[in-house]
Amino acid sequence: MEFTLRALQAVLNGLLTGSLYALIGMGMALIFGVMRIVNFAHGAFLMVGMYATYMLYDHLHVTPYVGFLVAAALLLGIGVLTYHGLLRWVAERSHFMQILLTLGIALILTGGAQLVFGADYHKANLPLLDVNLHLGRHITINAPWLLSFAITVVLATGMFLFVMKSRFGRALRAIAQNRYAASLMGIHVVRTEALAFGLGLAAVGFAGGLLLPVFYLYPTVGDEFTGKAFVIVVLGGMGSIEGAAVAGVVLGVIESLTSLYWGNEWALTVDFAIFLGVLSLRPSGLFGSQRV
C-alpha cells in the first residue's frame, strides 16, 4: 500500500514536471519541424522568459501567473525579430552554420543576462509556494506545481490544435514538408517561419514564467533545459509537436520514477540512455511520426 502510494506520488510529481518539459519540448519541436533547425538557444530563451516574469514580479508586483503571458508575448516578438534578423539568413545554409548561430545566440543571451542582472540568482517567493494540497495521508501536491500543470495542459492543447487545425498550422506543415512547394501554394514562407519561430519561443516564454515560482533563476539556468528539450524532440519523433508533448510528460515521469527506484543520480543517465536508444533503434521517435 505504502509502496504503491509512493509510486503514485512519484508519477504525479513526474507529471507536474513533465508538463513543463512538454511545453518546452513542443516549442523546440515546432521550430525543428518547420525549419529543421535545432535551437541550441532554447534554454537561453527560457531564461529570458524567466527574467521577464521575474522583473514584472519584482518591480511591478505582477504575479508570475499573469507575468508568464507577458513573457510569452515578449518572446514571440523576440522570436520574430531573431528570425528576420538572423535565422532567416541561414535557413538554406548548412546545419553547421545554423548550430553555430543558435549557439552564438545562446552565448549572447546568457552573457547579456550576466551583465544586466548579474550572476546572482533570484527567486519569486510567492505565498502560494507554501501551500501544499493533501490527498489522503500520503499524497501531497505543491499548489504552484499543480497550477502550472493545469495552465500547461490548456496551453499545450491550444498549441496542438492551432498547429494541426488552423490555416496557419497547415501552412507550417506545408513548409516543413516542402518549402518550395509551399511558396508555390501562395504561402508566405518567411513570414510563416518567423511566426513559427516566435511561437516556439512563446512556448518557452510560457514555460519560463510558470517555472519561475517553483524554481530559481540565474543566467545559465536554461542550459540544462536545452538538452532536455532535445531529448524530448528526439523521443517525440523529430518535429512532431504532439509527440513532443507526450515525450515531455513521459520524460518527467521516467525521471521521477528513476529517482525513486534507482536514485536521482541516475535520472540524467536515463535521459541520455533514452536519447541514444531512440536515436539508434527508432530514429523516427516513439510517439509521433508526422512532421509538425
Partner: peptide, 21 residues
C-alpha cells in the same frame, strides 16, 4: 507567394507534393 492570388498556378517539375499529408 503573391503569384497564385494573381491567377497563376505553377505545377513544378518532379511534383513536389507534401508527402506526409
Amino acid at each position: 507567394h503573391a503569384i497564385p492570388e494573381r491567377g497563376i498556378s505553377h505545377v513544378p517539375e518532379g511534383r513536389q507534393l507534401f508527402p506526409h499529408m
